[in-house]
């Protein structure tokens, strides 16, 4: 590292935080403007969570924080100090796919797959919330996740397969 870069680093107001991601606790040194999404992808090196729009409009960055689905691009890592986070890498257990992962395969609920980690984390959040029973309610409560390939009917079918059975 050259001298200029080193002096810039010294002046930065770094915060030390802990994040528990997929049951592993990480201690990170982050600058305040690092989003939770960037901390997960670039610091913890879990690239399953995707950066789509980076503005909370597409849902590709959806993760579960303390069991609730959120857009990780619109929160700062420092604001989530101590939080329990689940990403797509953490939903399968003991080498067995999460029922929603299996349902997405069963229903061919993706083409390019870029939105899929966010779709699955969002669907887990939806099922945890317990507010959707009908197809229409699932459509409405999955509206925060865009799929530009247009796999929506299959995504809704996959969520329907698992909804109420976890």
């Amino acid at each position: 590292m050259d001298q200029v870069a080193a002096s810039v680093m010294v002046d930065q107001p770094t915060h030390t935080i802990t994040l528990t991601v997929n049951k592993i606790t990480y201690e990170l040194k982050v600058l305040p403007w690092v989003t939770l999404l960037d901390a997960i992808r670039e610091y913890i090196e879990l690239p399953g969570t995707k950066k789509g729009c980076d503005h909370g409009q597409c849902g590709a960055c959806t993760v579960l924080v303390n069991g609730k689905r959120i857009n990780s691009c619109l929160t700062l890592a420092v604001m989530k100090n101590g939080a329990d986070i689940t990403t797509i890498e953490g939903v399968a257990e003991d080498g067995v796919l999460h029922p929603l992962q299996q349902a997405f395969i069963d229903h061919d609920a993706f083409q390019c797959g870029y939105c899929t980690p966010g779709q699955i984390c969002s669907a887990i959040g939806l099922i945890n919330e317990g507010k959707a029973t009908t197809r229409e309610e699932i459509q409405e409560l999955m509206s925060g996740n865009l799929c530009r390939c247009g796999a929506y009917p299959n995504i809704v079918a996959a969520v329907q397969q698992v909804n109420g059975k976890l």
């Binding site: 857009n71 999955m142 509206s143």
Partner: peptide, 9 residues
């Protein structure tokens, strides 16, 4: 308003 993820935040 918004989306479920945004309403959770």
């Amino acid at each position: 308003g918004a989306s479920p993820q945004l309403r959770n935040m």
